[in-house]
């Protein structure tokens, strides 16, 4: 049967390849099926489109690994844009507006985290409520419409280049690296795994569970804010409903990437690759001329298959007992 890997690298290798192979297979298939896919233009397009989901997925994998979930991220993406638009229109400079936008999301994460840990309420329920709240605040700020965000400088984030690569790529990379560092190199990362497996055991080991939980949701919220900045910059608009549904795709990315929805273990690389798979799939199907809803349907089937597959692969192996 399966060999027990004797160190973490081999263990990592066990999880990651399955989703990597799927990604590679998809890339090859689309390259072959449609000529428009394998162009530099499309590649950059892919990166810009996928950045938002990938950034959110890095935050989501932390939340899910800790045994929780964050349903508010989609609404926070929209909120960021509206806050930026709102504040810019009132005279704030765009860099500051950006920071305010992200901080608002961090604050939302803080509130969610506090209610979850101190109030002892299911993360699903709290972030579900926060979804309504954040979306509504966004709608209120934007009067239900879209706020145009003028400014060449700001839109550079979404459409500009740095070292020949789209800026969203760099943002995503930095975000992923920060989360990676957080998970692997800091004590918090360990504690998150521990809490996700068994929060009681974790507290008996001396881990401050409440504090860690709050940090998790602050992180998730902040990353949603960063994603929101990228999104707003790409479309030069602040719209509260943009990003609706992102949370579910992020969760799907995390799950097909090998993280069980119950938490306790998680793979950042898997989540990132999972998000790539979804983005590539959507991009490829659109290039083939399929309508957006049909694309949705196929992505839906693909996701279900992906999750089933993930269950078989990741549950089958890695059982010590």
């Amino acid at each position: 049967m399966r060999q027990n890997p004797s160190n973490r690298f081999l263990h990592w290798l066990e999880i990651v390849p399955s989703i990597a192979w799927i990604l590679i297979a998809l890339l090859i298939v689309f390259c072959l099926i449609t000529p428009h896919f394998a162009t530099l233009d499309n590649l950059f397009n892919l990166i810009r489109q996928g950045a938002v989901l990938t950034i959110v997925a890095t935050g989501m994998v932390v939340a899910i690994t800790s045994g929780g979930i964050d349903l508010s991220v989609g609404a926070l993406i929209g909120l960021t844009g509206t806050v930026i638009g709102f504040t810019i229109n009132r005279g704030l400079s765009w860099p500051l507006a950006m920071v305010v936008g992200v901080l608002v999301c961090s604050l939302a994460g803080l509130i969610s985290g506090l209610i979850i840990s101190k109030g002892r309420i299911f993360p699903f329920v709290v972030t579900f409520g926060m979804l309504f709240i954040a979306r509504s605040i966004g709608l209120g700020l934007s009067q239900g419409g879209s706020i145009h965000i003028a400014g060449q400088a700001f839109s550079m984030i979404g459409s500009g280049y740095f070292l020949y690569l789209p800026i969203p790529f760099w943002v995503t990379l930095v975000a992923a690296l920060i989360v990676l560092f957080f998970l692997k190199r800091t004590v918090f990362g360990r504690y998150i795994f521990s809490i996700g497996s068994d929060a009681n055991s974790a507290s008996w080991m001396g881990i401050k569970v409440d504090l860690i939980r709050v940090l998790v949701y602050v992180l998730s919220g902040t990353l949603a804010g960063v994603a929101g900045v990228v999104m707003a910059s790409r479309v030069n608009t602040g719209n509260a409903l943009i990003g609706q549904g992102t949370e579910f795709f992020a969760i799907a990315s995390v799950v097909i990437g090998g993280t069980p929805i119950t938490g306790g273990r998680g793979s950042l690389a898997g989540a990132v690759l999972g998000s790539f798979v979804i983005t590539v799939l959507q991009n490829g199907l659109t290039l083939l001329g399929l309508s957006s809803q049909l694309t949705s349907a196929i992505v839906g089937i693909a996701l279900m298959l992906g999750v089933i597959f993930a269950q078989l692969v990741y549950r089958g192996g890695l059982r010590g007992k």
Partner: peptide, 20 residues
């Protein structure tokens, strides 16, 4: 068993007093 199954032996040993 109070250990975290998906962390390594070393990580489990040093939880809450890691060399930092």
């Amino acid at each position: 068993s109070n250990l975290s199954p998906y962390l390594t032996v070393a990580q489990n040993i040093f939880i809450s007093h890691e060399p930092c």
